[in-house]
Simulated assay, not measured.
Amino acid sequence: MRLRKLRIGTWNILGRQRHHDSRVADDGAVYETVSKARTDILCLQEVHFYDGEADAQLREELDAAGLSHFVGSPLSPSHLDERAQLGVGIAARFPVLEFFGTRTLSNPGLRANVRGQAWELHDKGLVGARIQLTPDVAVNVYSLHLFPFFEFGIDDQDGYVDKMWRELWDVVDGVDEPTILAGDYNQTGRADAAKEYSRGSWSFCTPDTETTSTGLSLDDVALSWAPDNCERRIIETFSDHHLVLVEIDLSAPPRARDRIVLSDIGGVSHRP
Score class of each variant (00 low, 15 high):
residue 7 R to Y: 09
residue 197 Y to P: 13
residue 10 T to D: 14
residue 192 D to S: 09
residue 223 L to S: 08
residue 262 L to D: 08
residue 110 L to Y: 13
residue 141 V to H: 10
residue 152 F to A: 07
residue 8 I to M: 04
residue 238 F to Q: 05
residue 111 R to H: 13
residue 244 V to A: 15
residue 109 G to E: 12
residue 221 V to R: 00
residue 195 K to T: 12
residue 49 F to I: 11
residue 149 F to E: 09
residue 216 L to N: 14
residue 156 D to H: 12
residue 178 P to T: 07
residue 190 R to D: 01
residue 118 A to C: 10
residue 34 V to M: 09
residue 25 A to L: 08
residue 158 D to V: 11
residue 125 G to F: 01
residue 28 G to V: 03
residue 37 A to Y: 02
residue 167 E to K: 03
residue 265 I to L: 04
residue 164 M to P: 10
residue 84 A to V: 13
residue 252 A to I: 02
residue 166 R to W: 08
residue 81 D to Y: 01
residue 7 R to Q: 11
residue 151 E to F: 05
residue 143 S to P: 09
residue 143 S to C: 07
residue 225 W to N: 15
residue 255 R to T: 15
residue 88 V to G: 05
residue 43 C to K: 14
residue 178 P to C: 12
residue 200 G to E: 07
residue 163 K to I: 04
residue 228 D to E: 13
residue 59 R to N: 06
residue 45 Q to V: 05
residue 259 R to Y: 12
residue 37 A to C: 04
residue 167 E to G: 14
residue 168 L to H: 01
residue 257 R to M: 15
residue 119 W to P: 02
residue 256 A to V: 08
residue 106 S to A: 14
residue 32 E to C: 01
residue 136 D to M: 07
residue 231 E to D: 01
residue 134 T to V: 03
residue 242 H to M: 06
residue 109 G to Y: 05
residue 109 G to M: 08
residue 51 D to I: 02
residue 1 M to L: 09
residue 54 A to H: 13
residue 166 R to P: 13
residue 154 I to L: 10
residue 144 L to M: 09
residue 64 A to F: 07
residue 182 A to T: 12
residue 142 Y to I: 08
residue 267 G to M: 05
residue 157 Q to Y: 01
residue 201 S to D: 14
residue 199 R to M: 00
residue 89 G to P: 04
residue 211 T to A: 14
residue 103 R to W: 04
residue 165 W to G: 08
residue 169 W to I: 08
residue 106 S to M: 10
residue 202 W to Y: 00
residue 246 V to N: 04
residue 133 L to T: 07
residue 4 R to I: 01
residue 160 Y to N: 15
residue 78 S to V: 03
residue 176 D to C: 12
residue 52 G to H: 04
residue 151 E to P: 08
residue 25 A to K: 01
residue 261 V to W: 02
residue 153 G to R: 04
residue 255 R to V: 07
residue 140 N to C: 06
residue 179 T to P: 04
residue 66 G to A: 03
residue 42 L to A: 15
residue 56 A to Q: 13
residue 151 E to I: 01
residue 123 D to Q: 01
residue 256 A to R: 11
residue 209 T to V: 10
residue 266 G to A: 15
residue 72 G to H: 11
residue 45 Q to D: 04
residue 51 D to H: 09
residue 55 D to Q: 12
residue 76 S to V: 03
residue 114 V to M: 00
residue 8 I to S: 11
residue 55 D to H: 06
residue 84 A to S: 14
residue 198 S to H: 05
residue 103 R to C: 09
residue 82 E to H: 15
residue 203 S to C: 01
residue 5 K to N: 08
residue 73 S to E: 15
residue 173 D to T: 02
residue 22 S to K: 15
